[in-house]
Nucleic acid binder design. Structure first.
Ligand code: FES
Ligand code: FES
Lengths: 146, 146
DNA sequence: CGAATAAAAGACATTAATATCTTTTTAAAA
DNA sequence: TTTTAAAAAGATATTAATGTCTTTTATTCG
């Protein structure tokens, strides 16, 4: 529900690099995939898109890997969702009607719109950096839980 | 987002029969699919499951079709979700972690749990019959919008 | 330069969701 | 009883999401 697996992988990948990649240390896809118990090549594909968006840096070759940049910690979660799932999902009728709007709303529209706006608001405000505080960082270890 | 297409088809189908099938009039799959602009055979498969769950009645043969029963209007939306999507989706970590609980929550857990409980609450309380009041019924015409 | 390393890119595979088509079963009515 | 209509059932097809494998490109270092 809510979002695709790809989104989970993307956010977890970015978080891993953000947390483990302090001081610009470069992290390799191998390590990320292993630590997060995520399919390596699939993650690589997603990380490539993340880099293309400028949310992380990457360098090829020996001693290369993924590293954070100025944008990383300021990236809002919604931008990661865009990347992996698109944003139509915030605007489509929950019943699949073609036009979701106030004009001819389905009977769930109002309450769904409310819930949806909370989610959108949360994802529009929360930044990657907000999820990497000391108090939060514990969870990263549990990412690998199989 | 939120739910599958199947869920939308299921609810819309049940609503159509509930609204158009007053006095026990039987509605045929052909009519439902056409009026809702939904793939006929796919809808048939879903309606079969709805009937199996006892949420609608059906009769084969001439003058047959789908009709409402005592359960129909009292059916909670959550039961339709169960039918089409299952309910794990209300309990899985939004980041894909294996265990979503308070023990070792991901940094989004609390807010997501809140939003999720609203949705669960809404779907656990709302009944099919709540969506078929006069004021709401207008939308049924827009179901067909392509 | 040449070897080694790591991401980028792209081809291919699998699975789950969605969709279509055909056959079987049930029931009504002539 | 035969015909016909309609859902049930099941087989097959398509598409999108997820996952794997191979080749290419860029970078470092000896
Ligand atoms: S019209 Fe259905 S959610 Fe807006
Ligand atoms: S642990 Fe992530 S949503 Fe509960």
């Amino acid at each position: 529900m809510f979002f695709s697996k790809s989104f989970g992988y993307a956010l977890r990948g970015v978080l891993y690099v953000s947390i483990e990649g302090k001081e610009g240390r470069k992290i390799q896809i191998e390590e990320i995939a292993e630590q997060l118990s995520v399919p390596r090549h699939f993650l690589a594909k997603i990380m490539k898109a993340v880099v293309k968006k400028g949310i992380l840096n990457s360098t090829k070759g020996p001693y290369g890997g993924f590293s954070i940049n100025k944008k990383t910690l300021n990236t809002k979660l919604i931008h990661l969702v865009e990347l992996t799932d698109g944003t139509e999902l915030f605007n489509n009728c929950i019943l699949g009607l073609k036009n979701c709007n106030g004009k001819n709303p389905c009977p769930l529209h109002d309450e769904i719109a409310l819930i949806r706006s909370q989610l959108l608001n949360k994802f529009g405000k929360t930044r990657v950096g907000d999820l990497t505080d000391e108090e939060n960082v514990n969870f990263i270890k549990s990412l690998a839980v199989v």
